[in-house]
């Protein structure tokens, strides 16, 4: 079970209709690869975030499959075109079944 997991997202609060914005996301997570061994030589079980998605008003913006080679605290930066006011929903899926969700509303202004 991963501990100390905390999602962070940066989205502008307002945007002109049709403008492209930059979204930054980061989730603090150990991303244990499953390749390492502890002091006794036992394999430390894999525990990573295996999928990250972002949706805007129900429409998928990005959907990422993640693999064990990805470093700790995965950071994603991407762009999205915002045609209307609405809500971004960011979701991270953990190997242990946990789902972390963060929401950001954006207004046209």
């Amino acid at each position: 079970m991963a501990t100390g997991v905390k999602p962070r997202v940066k989205v502008p609060a307002t945007v002109a209709a049709g403008e492209t914005i930059t979204i930054k996301t980061l989730i603090s997570h150990n991303m244990e690869s499953g390749q390492r061994k502890d002091k006794e030589g036992n394999t430390i079980p894999r525990s990573i975030i295996n999928r990250f998605t972002c949706a805007f008003n129900g429409e998928t913006v990005i959907d990422v499959a993640m693999e064990p080679a990805i470093s700790t605290n995965p950071y994603f930066q991407f762009e999205a075109k915002v045609p209307e006011a609405g809500e971004f929903v960011f979701t991270w899926y953990d190997d242990d079944g946990s789902v972390y969700e963060e929401k950001k509303t954006i207004a046209i202004g």
Partner: peptide, 17 residues
Amino acid sequence: FQGKGALALAIGGALSL
């Protein structure tokens, strides 16, 4: 992993976004 949206990415290996 189906998305009806604009962009669906699957990235393996180390990332440096």
